[in-house]
Design a protein around this nucleic acid. Structure first.
Length: 692
RNA sequence: GCCACCGUAGCUCAGUGGUAGAGCACACCCUUGGUAAGGGUGAGGUCACGGGUUCAAGUCCCGUCGGUGGCUCCA
């Protein structure tokens, strides 16, 4: 006699087993029609799932109670749509074997092994979609049936589907006591798929869908294993939602930093220079410089010392640090001097032999530095250090080079040469907590100044069963606790992830999403017991004994390249006044006002404001349009009327209207104050009455 | 690195085997116009690069380089 408790607290009692569909029908025909699935005790389930005992039941409909698209409904619809797509593809591509087709954040995909010589391409999407539409129109029910593990496996073996057998075996290993299938229609005659479910009641309930793209993947994510074709699609409750989603994607594309980087002349990448190597153009370099100045000010305030170190170092340095032996495949190959190379050639030394002899240390060379720490360590080690000197905080906007896989490189977010806002703190163990806090303070300050609130924090802890970690467990416990406590003070979501620590210590990472939903790690703070050991670093303690310092690596924004790439997208290219490469553009109405415009330009430049004049022969409308396209924060329109009154008429980016006139001094002074205060004051304060 | 798709003017893109195109940007001329593009004229191309097929290749095939989306990787 199940007692069903609904989300509003009301209850219904049933004499026998009941399904969510029946409950929905009892509540009302509207709900029965709208229901796509159910949450039984919080667990997503089919509408036809039997409820045998007391349960909390919520019916899933396309829209939640706030009227927003319901996430569970989307999950059900997309999962079901993946089945429909798979059926359509199997129909059109005989011999295609299905592997795995889950819903994902913005849609779903299905991994499929296509037979040799029969490959789907995006040109095939429309005919696949036609078949899918037909299947949806047929409105066939999703019918679930279960077999015992043994019977199920036998069935799969009879069908000979290697991938599905694997899925089943893994489900069994994970503790399933049965295997379930979903037939799209009648089991035995209609299409079916081994699947855990749940699904919408029938294909007709899939509102609107679209195939999006094709990609490849590896079976089990293992690059040595079978290569699969992944077809991405998305589904929504109705056409309107789908359309809105596609519009969002289009909008997102407009703020893509690669598009804006070109349009706003921030940076360029030239294939002759090399893949993944950023050329900062003047406008982008200005943004970077302003940001670095901002960070530098805070570093100075926190007692960091800035240093400069070269872009290369001897191979032996990186043998000591361990970077060369352990991360060789992600470094540029070493540089060997001409004479040595000639000598080796004469000996007839093979490439393999050369590599071996470099590994052994018989041949030395130089490495483009993959990290800044060894150089900074040598600065630390260049003086005798007392416990009174600690912490020693060495900071550098240090450029490093890494041989990233070619397929992974793109835009500014994944590059081969980049500048970290790096620093290494050498401290006593009891100072770790305070130092980590200090690092977080910079992160908080800069993210809040930039208005970046959409980031998450990941605390990487050691895997409790792992054996790869250096340093004693007691130290680890204390360092992990310090990281955990520090992260909690940030006031943003953070997750603890065991096994994500570096082998030498725990870390805190900052992760943001780009405009197309990909996550990027920006900054990181890492506690390191290993390098001080490797380089035999020491300080003299109060006890007059030698002690080993602990190192903290921290690059709160990761790299200037990636950070500014993300920042461009964050602002959609419309930098706030203090960061804008061009802060003010003076627009004379005609040549008659050229002198007056130049006078204003002079005043702006005297106050350090980055400004230009558009002396072109365009009409004012065109000048405004051009400047607006460049997302310049303030436009200063000057004509005869202004010259007469000693004023300037102001237009701000993003405002459709001319804001009104200000005396020249007031204008220049306000922009200067806004710029110097990094936005704490604003020129807009003069126009508040107008704006509201 | 792997798979798919793509590479035509500075940018965005059209061009399905038969004379290389458009819009914007650029240069010059006219226009001196009060807030999101006034008008005209002109210049600009080794169709990424290298091979091949063909009477004929931007177009078809192979390779290389580069880009995009994924996968894998990311000290």
């Amino acid at each position: 006699m199940p007692l069903i408790t609904l989300p509003d607290g009301t209850t219904r009692e049933y004499q026998d087993d009941v399904t969510p569909a029946q409950v929905a029908a009892d509540i009302g025909p509207g709900l029965a029609k709208a229901a796509l699935g159910a949450r039984i005790d919080g667990e997503l389930a089919d509408l036809s799932a039997p409820i045998t005992e007391d349960a909390e039941l919520a019916l899933v409909t396309a829209k939640d109670r706030e009227g927003d698209p319901d996430e569970d409904a989307q999950y059900l619809m997309r999962h079901s749509c993946a089945h429909v797509m798979a059926e359509a593809i199997e129909e059109l591509f005989p011999g295609a074997r299905l592997v795995y087709g889950p819903p994902v954040e913005n849609g779903f995909y299905y991994d499929i092994a296509f037979p040799e010589g029969s490959m789907i391409s995006s040109d095939d999407f429309s005919r696949v979609e036609e078949v899918m539409k037909r299947i949806i129109k047929e409105d066939r029910a999703f019918n679930r049936y279960a077999l015992s593990c043994a019977d199920g496996l036998e069935k799969l073996r009879a069908e000979g589907s290697k991938y599905k057998i694997d899925n089943a075996e893994r489900a069994i290993e994970a503790g399933s006591d049965e295997l379930t299938w979903y037939a799209t229609g009648t089991p035995g005659t209609d299409w079916e798929d081994l699947c855990r479910g749940p699904h919408v009641p029938s294909t007709g309930r899939i509102g609107a869908f679209k195939l999006m793209s094709i990609a490849s993947s590896y079976w089990h994510g293992d690059e040595r294993s079978d290569r699969l074709t992944r077809v991405y699609g998305t589904a929504f409750a109705d056409k309107k939602q789908l359309k809105a989603h596609l519009a969002r994607l289009e909008e997102a594309q407009k703020r893509d930093h690669r598009v804006l980087g070109r349009k706003l002349q921030l940076f360029t990448i030239d294939e002759q220079v090399g893949q993944g190597l950023i050329l900062w153009k003047p406008a982008g370099a200005m943004v970077r410089q302003l940001l670095q100045n901002f960070i530098s000010e805070e570093l100075t305030r926190q007692g960091y010392a800035q240093v400069f170190t070269p872009h290369i170092g001897k191979l032996d340095l990186y043998r000591t640090s361990g970077h060369y032996p352990y991360y060789q495949e992600s470094q540029y190959t070493p540089i060997i001097d001409r004479e040595t190379l000639a000598g080796l050639a004469e000996e007839g030394c093979s490439c393999g032999e050369l590599a071996n002899r470099m590994d052994e240390g018989e041949i030395d060379g130089y490495l483009l530095k993959p990290m800044n720490c060894p150089h900074h360590i040598k600065i630390y080690a260049s003086e005798q250090r007392s416990y009174r000197d600690l912490p020693v905080r060495l900071a550098e906007f240090g450029t490093v080079y890494r041989w990233e896989q070619s397929g992974e490189i793109g835009g500014m977010t994944r590059v081969r040469g980049f500048t970290q806002d790096d620093a290494h703190l050498f401290c006593r163990e009891d100072q770790i907590a305070d130092e980590v806090q200090g690092c977080l303070h910079i992160v908080k300050l800069i993210f809040s100044t930039l208005g970046m609130t959409e980031y998450r924090v990941r605390v990487g802890l050691r895997d409790p069963d792992g054996t790869k970690y250096v340093g004693d467990p007691g130290k680890w416990d204390r360092a992990e606790q310090a990281c955990r406590e520090a992260a909690a003070t940030l006031g943003v979501p953070f997750s603890e992830e065991p096994g994500e620590a570096a082998f030498y210590g725990p870390k805190i990472d900052f992760v943001v999403k780009d405009v197309i939903g990909r996550e990027w790690q920006l900054g990181t703070i890492q506690v390191d017991y290993n390098l001080p050991e490797r380089f035999d670093l020491e300080y003299i303690g109060a006890d007059n004994q030698r002690h080993r310092p602990v190192m903290i690596h921290r690059a709160p924004f990761g790299s200037m390249e990636r950070f500014i790439g993300v920042l461009i997208e964050h602002f959609a290219g419309a930098f706030p006044c203090w960061l804008a490469p061009e802060q003010v553009r003076v627009l004379p109405i005609s040549e008659k006002s050229a002198d007056y415009a130049n006078d204003l330009l002079g005043m702006l430049k005297d106050r350090g404001i980055r400004a230009t004049v558009d002396h072109g022969s365009d009409r004012i409308q065109a000048k405004v349009k051009v400047a607006a396209d460049l997302k310049i924060p303030y436009l200063a329109v000057v004509g005869p009327r202004d010259a007469e009154q000693g004023s300037v008429s102001v237009r701000a980016f993003g405002r459709e209207q001319n804001l009104g006139a200000l005396p020249l001094d007031t204008f220049v002074d306000s922009v200067a104050r806004e710029s110097e205060s990094r936005g704490a004051s604003s020129l807009m304060e003069h126009f508040e009455e107008v704006g509201t």
